[in-house]
Design a protein around this nucleic acid. Structure first.
Length: 547
RNA sequence: CGGGACGUGGCGCAGUCUGGAAGCGCACCGGCUUUGGGAGCCGGGGGUCGCGAGUUCAAAUCUCGCCGUCCCGACCA
């Protein structure tokens, strides 16, 4: 049972270099109040204290017109929390965020979702950023059909086998039974393979680098908005190469320079990169590379994958070319994708009890300028001027001049929606020549002179971006543990990621982990890079519970 | 697809056990007063009680079936 790679000495290895804190209370241990009473110390209190301190420090002098309410901070005692606290019920919190931040609804058909404008704007930002990087990698966009002949799927044995259970198949069209049923694409390797085979004749046609933005359908048994829906939006890249090494390096390059770079630099989500174990590979791939992120509850989320398909699809679709010597060769192909699942990752990696927190580079609205009140009609024009100046400075800013709605409500709403910076302008500020700038990431507020707030915003946004990445990285690292046994990995996975020597993981170990819903998310070299040429018995298996 | 919980105005819920005129809070609309962290008062609108069959004089309530949602498993971007 224990393979040669899994010596019995494993049980005696040190448990952890960094020991997990006492296992977090299981749901049953956390006494959920019968009525969701307002916590005595709300999140407001913390933020507010920081606020008053900052205000006093920065303003100096008598500061006679510091808005008293900012300092006095009437806590939200007596009010129900806006969202179910994460610590109480993380999945419920996620649902609450989707609803309250107006992100998405369930569609009428099970497993489908409606992406609301605010969330779709975020998706459009993701598309823009990822698309630019894909083009930077040399791939061109194209579009292939939604309907695929069922026979195409069947040409690659593992591919059909893997996807059959989740296919949606159309058997009737135009009121008539179809001669050959058509599959609603679950992914497009097969159609694209068919056409690549047609287009590639010579080594001069290679590499052929294509990408498409599309929707795909995979009938899901257990859907979850953004994370696992029966229809989702994504990008799927498909490439053909003259050699295995060229295909491999391209797949790796997409993972590192497109996906990881986007996730780290734009989403501010630190991701691990690694290779999937055989059981977790894409159906039909010879190697699957992945970006794995940690969510706020310590669970893992696969954020994107890049596959080496070897010659499996090229063989199935007769994708051949003549090489420099006039010899017929079979192509080597890759495919890679990221999807609307990243929306779920974004929400769960950064969100807190007050709602969404958006990294500035992604945020569709980076700064909201709020007219606190406007007694004499002078504040709104000033605020609108700030918005215009911010826009001119390249900042995505918008105005909130809904003064008929109370300030508190609007502030709460923008926090729910995760806008990185709020600029609050009221009559007193105007009289003092200041505005109050509030950061969503850490809740701090400080006054700025109205004349130099605009030029200071880009740097502040950059600071917020960096702080969010640093905080997410720190949170992940605190929940990552080096372990020396399967038992220790199981315990650590209750909390976050376990780094377990791969040589300790045999089939029996995978089964034991699986019994507790813990899986090997990926394999890495000891320094956290892709396995590459690292000897197999030196690899590290990242084990975790996953979405 | 297996186990569990649950479907009552947009959201959260009471009412269901023990059948007998659909209620509450928030949200929404109007008016006035408000507006520097979830406003107040007054007045309104909105629900074939998830859907379909039964039982009954009478069904949100009882019975059966189906659908959906959430959690836990098996499957996945």
């Amino acid at each position: 049972m224990a393979g040669a790679s899994s010596g019995s000495s494993s049980e005696s290895l040190a448990f952890c270099t960094r020991r997990p804190r006492p296992r977090s209370p299981s749901p049953s241990a956390a006494p959920a109040p019968a009525v969701r009473a307002a916590p005595t110390t709300s999140l407001w209190t913390a933020g507010r204290r920081a606020t008053s301190r900052t205000l006093v420090l920065e303003r100096g002098g008598p500061a006679p017109s510091v808005p008293t309410a900012l300092v006095a901070s009437p806590p939200m005692a007596g009010k129900a929390p806006v969202l179910t606290p994460q610590s109480e019920d993380f999945p419920r919190w996620y649902q609450d965020v989707l609803n309250k931040a107006e992100l998405a609804d369930n569609g009428p058909v099970r497993g489908t979702m409606v992406i609301r404008p605010y969330a779709y704007a975020l998706w459009e930002r993701m598309v823009a950023e990822v698309d630019a990087r894909i083009k930077g990698a040399g791939a061109e966009n194209a579009y292939f059909p939604l309907f695929i002949p069922e026979s195409y799927l069947q040409r690659e044995a593992e591919h059909v086998e893997g996807f059959s259970p989740e296919l949606a198949i159309v058997t009737v069209g135009g009121g008539k039974e179809l001669e050959e049923p058509v599959v609603v694409r679950p992914t497009s390797e097969t159609v694209i393979g068919e056409f690549m085979a047609k287009w590639v004749q010579s080594y001069r046609d290679l590499p052929l680098l294509l990408n498409q933005w599309a929707n795909v359908v995979r009938w899901e048994l257990r859907p979850r908005v953004f994370l696992r829906t029966s229809e989702f939006l994504w990008q799927e890249g498909h490439t053909a190469h003259a050699s295995e090494s060229d295909a491999r390096s391209y797949a790796e390059s997409i993972l590192r320079n497109v996906y990881r770079e986007f996730m780290v630099d734009v989403l501010a989500i630190p991701v691990l990169i690694g290779a999937k174990i055989a059981e977790e590979r894409f159906a039909g791939a010879t190697n699957t590379l992945t970006c794995e992120a940690m969510m706020g509850d310590g669970k893992a989320l696969q954020m994107g994958t890049s596959h080496e398909l070897g010659q499996n699809f090229a063989t199935a679709f007769d994708m051949t070319f003549s090489d420099e010597h006039g010899e017929q060769q079979v192509c080597w192909t890759t495919s890679w994708g990221v999807s609307t699942r990243m929306m779920g990752g974004l929400i769960m990696a950064h969100g807190d009890d007050a709602g969404l927190r958006l990294p500035p580079r992604l945020a569709a609205t980076q700064v909201v300028v709020i007219v606190v009140r406007d007694d004499d009609g002078a504040v709104t024009p000033a605020a609108a001027g700030l918005v215009a100046d911010l826009a001119a400075a390249g900042v995505r800013a918008r105005l909130d001049d809904r003064v008929s709605t109370g300030f508190g409500r609007r502030a709460t709403e923008w926090e729910l929606k995760g806008v990185p910076l709020r600029v609050e302008v009221g009559p007193r500020d105007l009289a003092d020549g200041i505005v109050v700038v509030a950061r969503r990431d850490d809740g701090t507020k400080e006054p700025r002179s109205i004349t130099d707030v605009v030029p200071s915003v880009p740097a502040l946004l950059a600071e917020v971006q960096d702080a969010m990445l640093a905080a997410a990285t720190d949170a992940r690292d605190r929940r990552t543990f080096d372990v020396g046994s399967v038992d220790a990995a199981l315990e650590a996975a209750g909390e976050g990621f376990a780094r377990l020597p791969w040589r300790l993981v045999d089939a029996a170990a995978i089964a034991r982990l699986g019994a507790s819903a813990v899986t090997v998310r990926c394999l890495q070299s000891p320094d956290g890079d892709l396995p590459g040429s690292t000897p197999e018995d030196e690899l590290v298996a990242i084990c975790a519970r996953a979405y």
